Computed example of a mutant assay.
Amino acid sequence: MVERVIATEEALALIEKLKEQHGPVMFHQSGGCCDGSSPMCYPEGDLILGNQDVLMGEIGGAKFYMHKSQFEYWKHTQLIIDVVAGRGGMFSLEGVHGKRFLTRSRAFTKEEMLELGLI
């Protein structure tokens, strides 16, 4: 089955580094506010999830969540988590490494949308 969220090799390497430093980690796709719209990485359990958060999948063994209202906009796309140089969200673990996670995306093909029950 097609995955809703995947990660680049560079992102997977950074996730492993963060897990070595902090133990298990998790992600939540920020929907704006003070950190813009970016994937935020937290120690697992540090962000309290609500019943409106949707589990998108896992990357590097880390669960990846998004708010239900945001999911409605993104449900036709695959999220591709990447890493770029620079400072990202002030609450995300990777900031001290001079890198930040970035969400790229691509639209699902018709076949993938059928597989996911979107059409």
Rank of each mutant, 00 (worst) to 15 (best):
M1D: 06
V2P: 15
V2S: 06
V2Y: 06
E3G: 04
E3V: 11
R4K: 11
R4T: 08
V5N: 05
I6K: 05
A7T: 10
T8L: 08
E10F: 00
L12I: 03
L14E: 10
L14F: 04
I15H: 05
I15E: 10
E16W: 05
K17W: 09
K17M: 13
K17F: 10
L18F: 13
E20S: 15
Q21Y: 00
H22E: 06
H22M: 01
P24A: 09
P24I: 07
V25P: 06
V25I: 15
F27W: 15
H28M: 14
Q29G: 07
S30C: 03
G31R: 06
C34V: 05
G36Q: 03
S37A: 13
S38K: 07
P39W: 03
C41H: 05
C41D: 07
P43T: 07
E44H: 04
E44K: 15
E44R: 04
G45M: 13
G45Q: 07
D46A: 10
D46P: 01
L47N: 08
L47P: 03
G50A: 11
G50Q: 10
N51G: 08
Q52L: 06
D53W: 10
V54R: 13
L55E: 09
M56N: 11
G57N: 03
G57Y: 04
G60F: 00
G60Q: 05
G61T: 08
G61L: 11
G61S: 04
F64L: 03
F64R: 01
H67Q: 14
H67L: 13
K68N: 10
K68C: 03
Q70W: 04
Q70H: 11
F71H: 07
Y73G: 06
K75V: 09
H76Y: 15
T77C: 15
T77Y: 14
L79H: 05
I80D: 02
I80L: 08
I81D: 00
V83I: 14
R87Y: 12
R87E: 01
G89E: 08
S92V: 05
S92A: 10
L93I: 12
E94S: 12
V96F: 01
K99S: 00
F101E: 05
F101T: 04
T103V: 11
R104T: 10
S105A: 14
R106K: 10
R106S: 04
F108G: 11
F108R: 11
K110I: 06
E111H: 00
E111R: 08
E111Y: 00
M113C: 14
E115A: 12
L116K: 13
G117Y: 11
L118C: 02
L118Y: 02
L118P: 05
